[in-house]
Every structure is written in structure tokens, then in C-alpha cells.
């Protein structure tokens, strides 16, 4: 890690990887319109770029069945401030164009998939991995690089089936010392994002007033890592640490764990479905489980 640290710029230069939730099923149910939300986000991005010439912003769209890079400020150096004729900075033009393409592609994929019973979650695990890959590339590029951080702007509910992938991403981020900030605008609570921010030392916040989103973004999430040493940021009161089981993808707070590969199950199995280890008889089941007894009754 030392070599990484020495290549950092000394002050507040930051690389912000923004994960934008574009899940249509979420946006069709919210009070705030997607266009309104996007206005706030774009203004925020422009503000971040304005803070320092070396600041860099990458936007990854998190769709329902896919995710993709839709903007990278390092590809259009210095051009962000010019209007592209239509009274809008070039940033917004190219971003929106890409976003539109992305939505179209995502729709195609979603139609193919057709899993009626899947929770309307977005592919957070995918976009987190993409963000980490990008940051890893920046780390390895050898030049001086800005301090990276990830910001998840998420509204869709967690997809318990992504539990393992998301947790793996979180732990990678922790190893890379990349904080994951999360701003959850949905109605439920996101255990994933709470854990992500908690583990990586980022900030998790749930805005109460969505029409003031820009204010939340600038007040909390625009704070660069350098300044975080001097400023108090809001902390959540508690963190939801619950895990999803591997067998039914349910969120559980008590369960069985394979002692070999640490897979989590909500009920007792004879064999680990992940690594094939054969489990012993559960004492608890033997002694006290009624169902177990019932099954056994015909034999005797």
C-alpha cells in the first residue's frame, strides 16, 4: 500500500466513481421524477469537477440487468465547461446520450430475462465491481493519481441473490482502502449499502427530502477524503449486518454456516451445496426439532 500512497496527490484531488441507479422499476414508483433526480446529480458532478482541475469523475449506470460506464471525465480533458451549443455543458450531453443508449440496451436484456419473481433490484454488484476495476486500473497506471472514492446513488431495494458478490466487492474496496459512500433514496433500508459504507469507512446517508438532494450531495458527499479529517459527517445510528442465505437468498439473522467454506444457510443441510462438505447431524435438530422427529417416526 505504501507505493500507492506515495503516488497520491498531496491535497484534495479526488476521483469520484458514481454509481447511478437507473432501475426503471424503481423510478416508475418514486415521488421524485428521474429527470429531476438527474438534474441534481449532474449539477453535483459539475460542481465536483469545478472544485479542482485535476478532479476526475466516472459515472457507471446500474440498471436492472446490466451496468456500464456512461461517463469518464478523463476522456474529455478540459472540455467540460464548454457549452455544446444547446446551453448545456459537454459533460451532460455525452452522459445523457450514453445513458439513453444504455437504457435501450438494458431494456433488451430485461425482456430476454423475464424472471417475474425477482425482486426489482438493480445490479449493484456489477457496478461495484466495475468501479473497483476502474480504480484498480488507476492505481496501476503508475502516474500520480487522485484519491478515489465510490458513491452509490441507490434507490432500488437490495437483491439478496447478489449478497456474496456485493460483499466480495465491499471487502475488495476495504483492501484497496477505497471508501464507499452511499446515498440511499429508496423507501426501505439497504443493508448492503449500510454495510458497504460501514466496512470501508465511507458515509451512508438517507436523505429525507428528495427535492433537496443537491444540498445533501454537496454538503455530505462532495467532501473530499482530505477534508474528512477535519469535518464531522453524519453517522448512521445502527448498521444492518444481516446476511443472505445461499440456499434461498433470504435475508436472515440466524442461520447455519459451513465450517469449511463459510457458506450461509437458513436451514440445516446434509451437505454443503457450495463445497460439498458433508455436515454432521445437528445436535439441536436431533434433540429438539419436531419436524425431524416426525420424519423419523415411520422407521421405528
Amino acid at each position: 500500500m505504501a507505493s500507492v500512497a506515495s503516488k497520491l496527490y498531496s491535497d484534495d484531488v479526488s476521483l469520484l466513481v458514481l454509481l447511478l441507479d437507473t432501475n426503471p422499476f424503481f423510478w416508475s414508483t418514486t415521488s421524485i421524477k428521474f429527470s429531476q433526480f438527474l438534474s441534481h446529480v449532474l449539477a453535483f458532478l459539475n460542481a465536483v469537477l469545478g472544485l479542482n482541475q485535476l478532479n476526475q469523475v466516472v459515472v457507471i449506470a446500474t440498471g436492472y440487468s446490466s451496468c456500464d460506464y456512461i461517463y469518464d471525465s478523463s476522456l474529455t480533458p478540459n472540455g467540460n465547461f464548454e457549452s455544446s451549443g444547446s446551453g448545456m455543458p459537454a459533460l451532460f450531453g455525452s452522459l445523457l446520450e450514453k445513458l439513453e443508449d444504455f437504457a435501450a440496451k438494458d431494456e433488451e436484456l430485461s425482456k430476454e430475462e423475464e424472471h417475474e419473481d425477482r425482486i426489482a433490484s438493480s445490479l449493484l454488484s456489477g457496478s461495484l465491481s466495475m468501479a473497483l476495476c476502474y480504480i484498480q486500473r488507476v492505481f496501476r497506471s503508475g502516474h500520480l493519481h487522485p484519491q478515489p472514492r465510490i458513491l452509490c446513488l441507490q434507490g432500488s431495494p437490495d437483491g439478496p441473490e447478489q449478497y456474496v458478490a456485493v460483499m466480495n466487492s465491499i471487502f475488495s474496496a476495504q483492501r484497496l482502502m477505497v471508501p464507499i459512500d452511499s446515498c440511499y433514496i429508496g423507501t426501505q433500508n439497504s443493508a448492503f449499502l449500510q454495510q458497504a459504507s460501514y466496512i470501508t469507512g465511507g458515509v451512508h446517508h438517507t436523505p429525507k427530502q428528495l427535492d433537496g438532494l443537491f444540498q445533501y450531495l454537496t454538503t455530505i458527499f462532495a467532501t473530499d477524503l482530505h477534508s474528512r479529517g477535519f469535518v464531522q459527517l453524519p453517522k448512521p445510528v445502527g448498521v444492518d449486518f444481516r446476511a443472505s442465505c445461499f440456499c434461498h437468498k433470504k435475508t436472515i439473522d440466524m442461520g447455519y454456516i459451513c465450517s469449511v467454506c463459510l457458506s450461509i444457510f437458513c436451514e440445516h443441510h446434509k451437505k454443503c451445496s457450495t463445497c460439498g462438505s458433508v455436515f454432521g447431524q445437528s445436535k439441536l435438530d436431533d434433540v429438539s426439532s419436531v419436524s425431524n422427529k416426525k420424519r423419523k417416526a415411520p422407521d421405528t
Partner: peptide
């Protein structure tokens, strides 16, 4: 940096 933050705020 802190002043930048205040301006945005």
C-alpha cells in the same frame, strides 16, 4: 479544501 466545501454548501 474546506472553503470549497463551504461554497458548495
Amino acid at each position: 479544501p474546506l472553503a470549497k466545501k463551504y461554497v458548495l454548501q
